[in-house]
Design a binder for these strands. Structure first.
Lengths: 205, 205
DNA sequence: CCCTACATACGTACCGGTCAGTAACATTGT
DNA sequence: ACAATGTTACTGACCGGTACGTATGTAGGG
């Protein structure tokens, strides 16, 4: 936690188009580069250069590169749950349809040429060390996802809801990874279909 | 390709315990460190230090760090197919049992505390750049795995064998990733069970 | 209304350390 | 002799991070 960036309260009242604070530009660029190329692959010099700012500006808003990476992932986390809840809200009271809707979109996204998997998953692979700021955010996201998937599996009436929830999680992570490994026409395209089969089998147990 | 390491033909005839060539020691240490900590996270200095050799020795046997990483993955590839074929050979003519046997072992391995996922998958995440030596090896491994899984799904008599084969691949990759994310008690423990359900559903279409 | 006073925001220039990789030469064992 | 290894020292680039000076806007005091 900590990091006093973005207080943005005060009386500011920006005139509709703020002058784009340095911290925002940095985070935007970091998000893009970290996701596409990997966190370890990108140096802070590259980030500040592309953001059109200088290094001290970065370290005034973020205490370290690791914390910048964690901030990137917190932003990613927000966007992730937006996408997830969008699928959920589209099918109120129908967890099976919610999952399938979500996975249909995941499957589509994995087929885009610039697809690079899940930023959370990738960060966890890059930073296996326990307690690393980036990994902490990543793990929290995955634990919550598991919790929700299991809850949805239970709501479907699955006999073994935890197993089904975990199975769905495996399919999702598999889609993230194989999406960036195989690209277009890869196995990730069938994630919704396979999830549907798995759900069917788990309900008619 | 290229890289003239390990010719190990000639008349050598080692006396049961070779003096442990520098290249072998390097590759062993690299395998261990690259797998546990990641390729980008480990420098060549660390490798030569732990191997008890010097840097020129490394660069006499391997043209670059990237090629050393590729060699590590080629070794990993061999070991992978050994494990895979072990499960296959244990159940001749029964592809379903072969898959379940393999996944049961994968599920068990993912529960070990030092488990760090699949070296191939991790390397592909670390090196998204097309054509990178490490990524090339990794991709080849995954393409072959997909081919074999689809063939086994067809041998099971699945109506849509490609979808089932891809679904199994998704589960496997999901197990690799969530194994290192969740550790003990994570979703990867249920990979064999979920695969069995998916197969069942795909056969009784 | 002008001048100071202070905070905020940013830039220049630099730090020591580590990165991958190499040159030139000495040592060993067969 | 010769092939494999070690020794030492070095390169230029880059790493994350920082000390320190500078512009700008704005609040008060005369």
């Amino acid at each position: 936690m900590s990091s006093d960036n973005n207080i943005e309260a005060s009386i500011s009242e920006v005139p509709a188009s703020a002058p784009a604070k340095a911290a925002d530009k940095i985070l935007d660029v970091a998000r893009d580069l970290f996701y596409r190329e990997g966190i370890r692959a990108i140096g802070v010099d590259e980030i500040v250069k592309r953001a059109g700012v200088t290094k001290p500006s970065l370290y005034r808003s973020f205490p370290s590169k690791d914390e910048l990476a964690a901030s990137y992932l917190r932003k990613y986390d927000l966007e992730f749950w937006e996408r997830f809840d969008e699928a959920v809200d589209a099918h109120p009271g129908d967890p099976r349809a919610q999952i399938i809707a979500f996975l249909t979109r995941v499957g589509k996204r994995t087929q885009r040429p610039e697809y690079r998997g899940c930023g959370m998953t990738n960060a966890a692979v890059e930073y296996p060390e326990r307690g690393h700021p980036a990994r902490v955010v990543s793990e929290a996201n995955k634990y919550e996802l598991r919790r929700r998937l299991r809850a949805m599996a239970a709501a479907m009436g699955a006999a073994d809801a935890d197993t089904l929830g975990d199975g769905l999680l495996l399919l999702i992570e598999g889609a993230y990874i194989s999406g960036q490994l195989f690209g277009l026409g890869g196995p990730a395209a069938s994630v919704a279909r396979n999830a549907d089969l798995l759900i069917e089998a788990s309900l008619n147990k």
